[in-house]
């Protein structure tokens, strides 16, 4: 068969395939008929055979390129990604995330040590020697915290004084809470995701973010305690802290997983190690993000609510237990899922 005869015979089929692809592209999965899918499948195999023929005869780069492009389009259309069901998200939170978290628990432990260690150390240090707070908290921030946590500040359960507002002036109380919810999501989840992403610097960036946040938050707690606002801050933070502080360590652990994948590929090639471990790390990081969204809701709407500190401590303590019960127990036993990473 000559090139010209081949072209004459096959070209109508290619054009037909092209049309089919265009139609396939425009319509959603639901709108495609079985007959069309079968035709696409047949066309794809014909096209592969044609491309092999062209390559075997050496009929030129242009024709090769054309068929290659068309086959590439067909390939993406035919081997399309399966739709992601919404139910998958719930299953991920109840099973997938706790499982992958436990599998990589040692990274969480290291990250937790890097975060909670400086946190308690700087808390204790500032509580013991209040002037140390000046080393960590700039004067204007100390003033801001004084205002926020003061008797009539934004965190006072009896409602903030009209003129005692901080920089966030959103109108009445409920309006302010809604505004803060958005802020907490944008700010806190952003920090956790950056902490995770910086893991690609062999973990150095992650370690820095963990240490820095631990020191800073510990100093704030110590400072609030020594300046007489401790009760208001602790009762405010205890509830959402269960999700928020844990999630920072979880995200840090995910970042350390990335660094570890680069440093210790084990029996895999380094690239293979990145792909496999990266897929696990993202599932841990996404869990941390979900935890922080929950924490933002609590922090905005529950933590500042005018409720007696004793109740807040009780609820907070039970949430700490619940968070760790979820991380440590959820998804144990039961059928072995198809690992999320392979889908």
């Amino acid at each position: 068969m000559t090139k010209r005869a081949f072209l004459a015979a096959r070209r109508p089929r290619w054009e037909r395939f092209h049309e089919l692809l265009d139609r396939f592209d425009r319509r959603s999965l639901r709108g495609r008929t079985a007959a069309e899918a079968a035709e696409l499948s047949r066309g794809l195999r014909e096209l592969a055979a044609d491309l092999a023929t062209v390559r075997a005869h050496g009929w030129g780069e242009r024709l090769d390129g054309y068929l290659n492009t068309l086959l590439g389009k067909g390939h993406t259309a035919f081997y399309a990604a399966p739709p992601s069901p919404v139910a998958g998200f719930v299953r991920y939170l109840t099973r997938g995330f706790p499982r992958v978290f436990r599998k990589n628990g040692r990274f969480f432990l290291v990250a937790a040590a890097l975060f909670f260690g400086p946190f308690f150390a700087s808390w204790a240090a500032v509580a013991a020697k209040p002037e140390l707070a000046n080393r960590i908290l700039p004067a204007e921030q100390q003033a801001m915290f004084d205002e926020m946590y003061a008797e009539d500040g934004a965190l006072d359960p009896d409602g903030a004084a009209e003129d005692g507002r901080s920089a966030f002036d959103f109108g009445d109380y409920s309006q302010e809470r809604s505004g803060m919810a958005g802020f907490y999501v944008q700010h806190n989840v952003g920090i956790a995701l950056k902490c995770f992403a910086l893991g690609v610097t062999l973990g150095a960036g992650t370690i820095y973010v963990l240490l820095q946040n631990g020191l800073f938050l510990g100093a704030v707690f110590g400072y609030a305690g020594t300046s007489g606002n401790g009760e208001r801050l602790y009762s405010f933070a205890v509830t959402h802290g269960s999700f928020e502080l844990t999630a920072i360590a979880v995200a840090g652990g995910a970042g350390l997983m990335l660094g570890d994948a680069l440093l210790h590929p084990g029996r895999r090639s380094r690239l293979g190690s990145l792909m496999v471990r990266g897929r696990e790390a993202i599932q841990v990081a996404a869990g941390a993000a979900a935890m922080l969204v929950i924490a933002a809701g609590l922090e905005a709407f529950w933590s500042p609510a005018p409720i007696a500190p004793a109740i807040k401590y009780a609820v907070g303590a039970s949430l700490w237990v619940a968070v760790f019960a979820w991380l440590l127990l959820a998804g144990r036993g039961g059928p072995a899922d198809v690992p999320e990473a392979t889908r």
Partner: peptide
Amino acid sequence: GLGGTASGAFLLLLFFSEWGYFTFCEA
């Protein structure tokens, strides 16, 4: 008088635009 809700929604949108837009488009 809905400033708080509005800015909260704006910050959520900002968060999505920063961290979610590319992922959801591509996925």
